[in-house]
Structure formats: structure tokens, C-alpha cells
Amino acid sequence: MIVLMSAFASQEYWDEMATITGQVESQSGDTGQERFDSWLGGWRMFLDHPIIGVGAQNFGMWIQDYFPIEEKAYRMWGRVAHSLYFTLLPEMGIVGTIFFFGMIWGNYKDQRYLSTLETKKGALLAATNLTEEEKESISKGIRTLHFLSLAYGGAMVAYLVTGIFISVLWYGYFWMLTSFYVITSNVARNIEEQIKNNSKTLKPENSIYMAYGKFDQVS
């Protein structure tokens, strides 16, 4: 896919990509050097407000006071940092940064849990008196949750990588993905708890996820 995109991308696209490093100036006047200067301004802003930052979405209100090139500073008011991380640090400070990466760590733990459940589901289901067909239906449900978590993980990595050069902190993607992780892991934990607590009476229709339809019909 990447090779095809590279082969068919227009020169206009490559010219715009070159503005990231400052090799070419874009039509809007934004250059790689200005991006790096904004990062430096953001770092200076963070050093002046290290604990709780200047407040959410306030980077643009403060950047003109910290932009390293004085003659350009006046036109930087309202501009973004061109980076998730140089938005996070000056706006939210150390406290907010800890919370942000704490949520990422929580997402990672949910990912690990869902992968582990996929691995041990056979042993869990073996302790029940379900029919093979019923076990397969529940197994497919757990597998679906695992695959969903892998999709979330890929999207999260893409978000964090592209965030190096894009101010995506307050876009909805991170918060939606985190919500999806929480919901999916909670559903999986409910299923596991039911399997463990009702090993002799569990039926697929009693599992919380079966209320949304049999997974073997959508997997």
C-alpha cells in the first residue's frame, strides 16, 4: 500500500511533505524551521509552567511570548504547536502528562489482558458443561474482542507517531480509542467472570455480549 501511494503521489504532495523539514516553503508560508521554532517556544512555555501548564488549548494564546524569533512572534498568536507532545507539555504540564501516559499504560494493560484471555479461553471453556457448538460460539466472541483490541492498538500507534508532527492532542481519536479499550476489556472481563463463576450452568445466551447477537453470525 505504501509503495503504491509513493508511486502515484503527485509532486504537489511531495512538495508539501518537504515543508516538514524546511526544505521547501508551503503555500501557507509554514516551514519546517517555523515548526521547530514552535517546538522550542513550547518547551520554553513548559519550563515557565512546569506543573500544570498554561491550560488546555491555550498554546496559541501564549506562543507569541515564547517564540524564539522576535520579529515573527507577533503573527504566531493563535497558532498550534505542530506536535502532540509540544502541545501536551506546555498546556498540561507534568501533572497532565503523567495522566495522559497513564491512560496509554492503561490501554496497554487492557491490550495485554485481551490477548491473554484469547490464549487461555480454551482452558476456561473446558471447565464448563457447554456443548462444543456453544463453546465455539463463545470462543468466537472472545476472538472478536481480541481482534478489535489489535485494531485499537494499531490505531493508537498511528496516532502517537503522527502526533510527532501534528497537533492531535485534542482531536477525538485518542479519547475514543481509550473508551473503546475500556468498553471492550470490561465486556471481556464480564465474560471471563461468568465462565469462572458459572462453569456448570453457563449458556451463551447468558453472556453479556450475546445480548447483541451471536458472534458466530458476524465473525
Rank of each mutant, 00 (worst) to 15 (best):
L4A: 02
M5S: 02
S6V: 07
E12K: 12
Y13A: 02
W14K: 15
I20H: 05
S26I: 12
G29K: 09
D30H: 13
T31K: 01
F36S: 01
D37A: 14
S38P: 07
M45W: 06
F46A: 00
H49A: 03
I51Q: 07
G53F: 05
G53Y: 04
Q57L: 03
G60N: 11
G60H: 09
M61D: 06
F67R: 07
F67A: 03
I69F: 04
E71Y: 15
E71H: 15
G78L: 02
H82M: 12
S83K: 13
L84C: 07
T87K: 01
L88T: 08
L88P: 09
M92K: 04
G93W: 08
G96S: 08
T97P: 00
I98E: 05
F100L: 01
M103G: 04
M103V: 08
G106M: 14
N107L: 04
N107H: 05
Y108I: 15
Y108D: 04
R112S: 03
R112H: 06
Y113C: 00
S115F: 13
S115V: 07
S115L: 12
T116F: 13
L117C: 11
L117V: 11
E118S: 12
T119L: 13
K120L: 02
G122Q: 13
L124Q: 04
T128Q: 14
E133I: 00
E133Q: 08
E134N: 15
E136W: 11
S139V: 03
S139L: 04
I142V: 12
H146V: 00
S149N: 12
L150F: 08
A151M: 09
A155P: 02
M156C: 03
V157C: 08
A158Y: 04
Y159A: 12
L160P: 01
W170Y: 15
Y171T: 12
Y171I: 08
Y173H: 09
T178Y: 04
V187C: 08
I191M: 02
E193P: 01
T201D: 15
L202Y: 05
P204H: 12
P204F: 11
I208D: 00
Y212F: 15
F215R: 00
